[in-house]
């Protein structure tokens, strides 16, 4: 049991996104996706949209 396998997938995705953002790259636009990758990516997409909603709502409260 290595520790690397216990890192939550979201953390990995988040980190990859962070690195990509810092480097000004667009991540995983054209990556081939298997069934699993497709499902996970869609779930992640929903989470990302939720994050935008929360941040937009917070700004609105501050108006």
């Amino acid at each position: 049991q290595s520790t690397t396998t216990s890192v939550p997938l979201n953390d990995v995705d988040g980190l990859m996104q962070q690195v990509a953002d810092e480097a000004g790259l667009e991540l995983n636009m054209e990556l081939p996706q298997g069934v699993q990758a497709g499902s996970i990516a869609t779930t992640q997409a929903s989470q990302e949209q939720d994050e935008l909603s929360q941040r937009l709502a917070r700004l609105r409260q501050a108006e």
Binding site: D21, E26, L27, N28, M29, Q33, G34, V35, A37, G38, S39, A41, T42, A45, E48, Q49, L52, R55, L56, L59
Partner: peptide
């Protein structure tokens, strides 16, 4: 079953991704 390569869903995800990047930076 889950269609990995359905072009419509890929297109949706593509625009989601770009929207997320732009709006995250704006935020």
């Amino acid at each position: 079953g889950p269609g990995p390569g359905d072009p419509l869903l890929a297109k949706q995800k593509h625009h989601h991704r770009r929207a997320f990047e732009y709006i995250s930076k704006a935020l």
